[in-house]
Design a protein around this nucleic acid. Structure first.
Length: 891
RNA sequence: GGGCGAAUAGCUCAGCUGGUUCAGAGCGCCUGCCUUACACGCAGGAAGUCGGGGGUUCGAAUCCCUCUUCGCCCACCA
């Protein structure tokens, strides 16, 4: 009936094909019914795709989606259609690096073609990866295209903001990458602590009556100085304000001004002012109507505004020359080492040059207000909580967003300028403009393109067809949960909230779950440039997708990073593989014992298993199963995926495989009656275990679940219902009683191991000092005890013998395994002595606690009662062991 | 400079609302087993004064303060 299963789980054989099987049956398409549950999917980043970080994000998203689907929600990922922007940027960077070329060496058309070829290629790679790790998104949606819908949404948004006066153009100091030749947003200019120098320059007063010393970290910018500023309240310089400086090197007269922005405590308290090359200076310049001298070209070489001998020099070369000239002139007062934050381009790591330039901006404060309110009012929450405060802090101090980029790819800014100078009309438009609406003259579109995130921030609704009022939009906006990496909280998440509030009137999702970051053993972020990445596809090939997913999920405690050692992927991923194999073999065993349908455990069927037919072990595993359902469900609801994985793991491995399967073997083999009941319980609890684990390990659970008896060939575990909690299985008695049996078995095993009893050799055991129902329990489970602990006979009462291994169970039951001359009495005395010591320690502490009137009067009665019971139990255990030691003649 | 987080077994990490169900898991290590589901396994074992110090409390890995060390985010002191 079922094809024979190999004794080892072979991911390659099982996983290939299952994904297609799912897709063919449309199992990943949103269900027709049910409450929508939408997990927003971030645009995959091409450079990240072969790294573990993306594997982590995608896995976590998929775990939640599968969980919610099984719970009857129409869960889907919402893949953005705008993967082009970021993807392209990265592809371009890679291409340029590979070709060893710069953007200007390739013609635009050839360039675009080459880039898009690459995008299509890497797009396929991304799909491969997502399939390989079992992600269940509906990938039929457009992927990796700059599709027209999106362009439409981008233009719509731009024009709306423009009309509201929220988009504006202006001259500002922006972050400029001299290599990429583009403006960068504040978020894209990554600050890095850098060891630099602080040069102290003497600026002589124009009348020769002395000098003012200024400090700078960027000497080359002094070529563009147009003032020196001091704090208005600074006594040292008060008399100098309004006088002139003769700027060395360039030999130009500049004024000394007073401005509040100057910190009198830093450096000399006097600062050179270079409005074209520093944001603060730019502000000072505006206040004092100073000229702005841009002394650099876009490539960060000295421009024609610099003295002739500097023109064309690279900025760092110019820096050396300026310093040298100061030194030669005796105007270099001193040089100090100085550690400060320097901006670097997030794409190419080039030092960013603050540069005066004309750019487009979005006024953010009005957009931030409702987005902040949503958080404050609880309509938006973050997991972990503390990220919410980061979000709020950023929103409160938000700065305008520079959205124009001087790149060759992306959405062009939908603004047209009239070519006629006398008209100079500027139009923002949803459609292309060819004729000037004012004078009828020709129009020219802005050359710049929009920041990638300007399309990405619209994904929650643009990907659903907005601005049209589509069915999808009605149904799936807003979503429930955004799962993404913390590093794009501001780039993307915060902006999506703002755009959602502005254009849809409500937040795009109510929960933002921020995953950890995948780091290497030195806690460095995994990245291509560091070469410390792990390709998830390699892991899939070596260990299987389920092993990869298990490791990632098990390592993802809320708010913590996942550390993986790229040099030792065996250690990281073998546990997942081992667990998959364990599950596979447990399944193989159970399936091999299930011929045809099993009896139902509940319902009105004639052959339903009656409660009194259940053995203690049956009741125990059903109770454990129930507990596992509660644990896993609650953990997933609270985004504690690692706990969900651990709970499912414990249930399947420790409870089901280690104990229950071992316990029922005689019944399955027909050595004991009740095989049909054992089969029914095993089938049911295994089924539940598979479903609990399915979100984390979809392939292996699907493969096994499909083989359970009575499955329709097209049924899939991914659309089967999530296990319901069953109060009737809440069986504390069974848990306690079977727990005692487990303790007894362990105690005998321990003694056997301690004294090297040969594995096959049976031992006798005597149990005494029994609790009320213990004898009945042990008698009923005699088979279990004898098989699992190799006990040939179990006697009740106190043994006449005294030489052997002794133990005591938690309820005070004494255990004795006679070993005759086989053991060393001294060794047994030591063994028991250690245990007695431990108990005495506990008892002493506990007596002190209970003797403390403060405790008994202040602690809750239930706690006190529990503590009393513990003490009684320990005393009893101690007493039993002490007697045994006395019997052995221990000193 | 501001904000935040972390420090628990050799390694990677759990430990949520303070109370021996809390000192745990996996890997690694040691011992014995190829027991008819699984050696990617089974059974047993060793191993941590929960970073240091102080405090709150009847009681602290858990709450507070402080120090040390690492990490992250933000930031226009040139």
């Amino acid at each position: 009936m079922t094809e024979p299963l190999a004794p080892q789980y072979n991911p390659a054989a099982i996983e290939s094909g299952l994904y297609r099987w799912w897709m063919e049956r449309g199992l990943f398409a949103p269900a027709a019914r049910g409450t929508p549950y939408v997990v927003m999917m971030p645009p995959p980043n091409v450079t990240a795709v072969l790294h573990m970080g993306h594997g982590l994000n995608n896995t976590i998203q998929d775990v939640l989606v599968r969980f919610e689907r099984m719970r009857g929600k129409a869960a889907l990922w919402l893949p953005g259609t705008d993967h082009a922007g970021i993807a392209t940027q990265n592809v371009v960077e890679r291409l340029l690096a590979k070709e060893g070329t710069t953007r200007f060496d390739i013609g635009r058309e050839a360039f675009v073609e080459q880039v898009w070829g690459h995008v299509r290629e890497t797009g396929a790679t991304i799909l491969e990866q997502l399939k390989a790790i079992g992600c269940s998104a509906d990938w039929s949606r457009t992927y990796f295209t700059l599709d027209e819908d999106l362009s439409r949404a981008v233009r719509e948004v731009f024009v709306r903001l423009y009309d509201k006066g929220l988009v504006y153009r202006g001259h500002y100091i922006i972050n400029w990458c001299p290599r990429c030749l583009t403006a960068l947003s504040n978020e894209e200019a990554e600050k890095e602590e850098t060891d630099g120098k602080l040069w102290h320059f003497r600026y002589p007063l124009a009348d020769g009556s002395g000098h003012v010393t200024v400090a700078t970290t960027r000497p080359e910018t002094m070529l563009g100085d147009t003032a020196v500023a001091v704090h208005p309240a600074d006594e040292r310089y008060r008399a100098l304000v309004g006088r002139q400086i003769r700027l060395p090197v360039v030999d130009r007269l500049i004024p000394i001004v007073a401005d509040d922005a100057v910190d009198p405590a830093f450096g000399t308290g006097a600062v050179k002012v270079t409005p074209a090359h520093d944001p603060t200076d730019f502000e000072i310049g505006k206040r004092h109507r100073l000229a702005s001298m841009d002394v650099m070209t876009p490539e960060a070489r000295m421009s024609l505004a610099a003295p002739e001998r500097f023109q064309g020099l690279d900025r760092f070369e110019a820096r050396k020359r300026v310093v040298a000239e100061f030194e030669d002139a005796g105007l270099l007062e001193k040089v100090e080492p100085h550690r400060h934050a320097v901006g670097h381009c997030y794409r190419c790591d080039t030092v960013v040059e603050p540069r005066l330039s004309e750019q487009w901006f979005v006024k953010m404060a009005p957009l931030a207000e409702p987005a902040l309110a949503a958080y404050r009012e609880g309509r938006l929450r973050f997991v972990p909580d503390r990220r919410g405060e980061e979000y709020a802090q950023w929103m409160e101090n938000i700065r305008d967003w520079c959205i124009s980029r001087q790149l060759w790819w992306g959405h062009r800014i939908p603004v047209w300028y009239c070519e006629y100078d006398h008209c100079a009309r500027v139009v923002a438009s949803r459609t292309d403009v060819t004729r000037c609406p004012g004078c009828g003259g020709p129009m020219r579109q802005d050359e710049d393109v929009l920041d990638t995130w300007f399309s990405s921030w619209l994904v929650p609704f643009s990907s659903l067809g907005w601005p049209d009022q589509t069915e999808d939009l009605r149904r799936f906006y807003p979503g429930d949960t955004l799962v993404t990496a913390p590093e794009i909280l501001f780039f993307w998440v915060a902006r999506m909230v703002m755009s959602g509030c502005e254009f849809m009137g409500e937040v795009p999702f109510e929960t933002v779950y921020l995953t950890g970051t995948v780091r290497d053993s030195q806690h460095r972020k995994m990245s291509k440039s560091l070469g410390n990445g792990i390709d998830p596809l390699d892991v899939v090939r070596l260990f299987g997708a389920d092993a990869l997913r298990y490791t990632l999920v098990a390592g993802s405690a809320v708010g913590t990073d996942v550390i993986l050692d790229p040099g030792d992927i065996e250690t990281s991923f073998a546990p997942g593989r081992n667990f998959a194999n364990k599950l596979w073999n447990a399944g193989r065993f159970i399936l091999s014992n299930l011929e045809g349908p099993t009896r139902p455990l509940a319902g009105r069927a004639r052959d339903v298993v009656r409660r009194e037919e259940l053995s203690l072990a049956d009741r125990w595993i059903l109770a454990r199963c129930e507990a596992a359902v509660v644990e896993v469900t609650e953990a997933l609801e609270r985004f504690r995926l690692n706990e969900a994985a651990a709970a499912a793991y414990r249930f399947i491995w420790s409870d089901l495989a280690d104990w229950y399967i071992e316990q029922i073997k005689p019944r399955l083999y027909g050595d004991q009656p009740g095989g049909d009941v054992a089969r029914a319980v095993a089938a049911q609890t295994f089924d539940v275990g598979l479903r609990l684990l399915h979100p984390v390990m979809p392939f292996i659970t699907e493969a096994l679940w499909k083989r359970l008896p009575g499955r329709h060939p097209d049924a899939s575990i991914s659309t089967s219902p999530w296990p319901a909690t069953d109060r009737r299985a809440d069986d504390a008695e069974a848990l306690r009683q079977f727990g005692l049996v487990q303790e007894l078995v362990s105690a005998v095993r321990q003694i056997r191991a301690e004294y090297g009893v040969a594995p096959g050799q049976g031992v006798r055991a005597t149990v005494g000092n029994l609790g009320p129902d213990a004898r009945r329990t042990f008698e009923a489970e005699l088979g279990t005890i004898s098989r699992l602990a190799k006990v040939s006979s179990l006697a009740f009462g106190e043994s006449g013998e005294r030489v052997g291994g002794h133990a005591v169970l938690s309820d005070g039951t004494s255990v004795f395994v006679p070993l005759g001359d086989a053991i060393d009495v001294g060794r047994e005395c030591n063994r028991l002595g250690a245990e007695v010591e431990r108990l005495l320690g506990l008892i002493g502490a506990q007596e002190k606690k209970l003797g403390n009137a403060q405790f008994t009067s202040r602690a809750p009665a239930a706690v006190v009662e529990r503590e009393r019971e513990k003490l009684a139990s320990w005393r009893e255990q101690h007493e039993v062991l002490a007697r045994k030691r006395a019997l052995l003649g221990c000193v």
